[in-house]
Amino acid sequence: MSLLLFLAQTVRIAIPYLFAAAGGALAERAGIVSLTLEGFMLGGAFGAVLGAHYAGSAWIGVVTGVSAGLALALVHALCTIRYKADHVVMGVAINLFTVGITRFFLQLAFGSSSNSPRVVGFGADGTAASTFGFLLNPLVWLGIIVMPALWWLVQKTTFGLRVRAVGEHPQAAASVGVPVSRVRYVAVLASGALAALGGVYLALDQHQFTDSMTAGRGFIALAAVIFGRWDPLRAGVACLLFAAAETLQIQLQAAQLIPSQFVAMIPYVLTIVAVAGVVGRSTPPAALGRTTD
């Protein structure tokens, strides 16, 4: 039973990672660096709370959250694709901008500098508290299938073939008439929507928005993409692994066997080890982050 509890908690923690990493994998396969995941998630979380608060509906929250992610992604796409801004600089800018603007609107809309009032989520009140209540949340099911679906998209469809070509050798793709910029716009916008869904899930699961609530999850998701060598299925496994480490951390902290500071490091240490390439060198898409065509 405790194993089942462990698994349940792992999945629950993994959902935002899965969404964000799916967005990251898609954009990076198309050649656009995804440092922005953190900002997309945070924007999605705030958008969701705003929508859910005023409309009183979790579904409206999903729509507004995703819209926020799309808006941020559009800015990122315009700057990196059209104006050829440096992807990393843009990523940092988007992240900082999102922290600032969500804080601003938090104050404006709810008169608080720390958190929003309670909003509706998925599932009736009360069930969410029970161990398996989260399974009533449709976003959980979407999160579970997002990586296999993305894998299918990338490997089996014409669009996926073009995404791979565009991320590896945009000039080659352009020389045979593939609309490189359009493919990249679609990929970045989809990545904004996906990562925002991760934020939407977080906010609705906690029934509120708190300042900077994503707490680096976007970066861990990006680490999962790299750890998974830009392959959706492997990135999905990496997300589950990181989530398992976090679950372990929570349970060990409760048990108080090891000083909690060390336990709290587990997910981050695992991330560093993974990204440092201990588990095999990973080669990014060749054109990743290249702004000059």
């Binding site: 014409t158 073939l161 791979r164 070509a165 590896e168 050798h169 080659a172 793709a173 593939v178």
Partner: peptide
């Protein structure tokens, strides 16, 4: 103008799949 990570067939048909 070839994408090294794709197969020969994929490179040939790219853009007219």
């Amino acid at each position: 103008m070839l994408v090294p990570t794709l197969t020969v067939a994929e490179n040939v048909v790219l853009g007219r799949e």
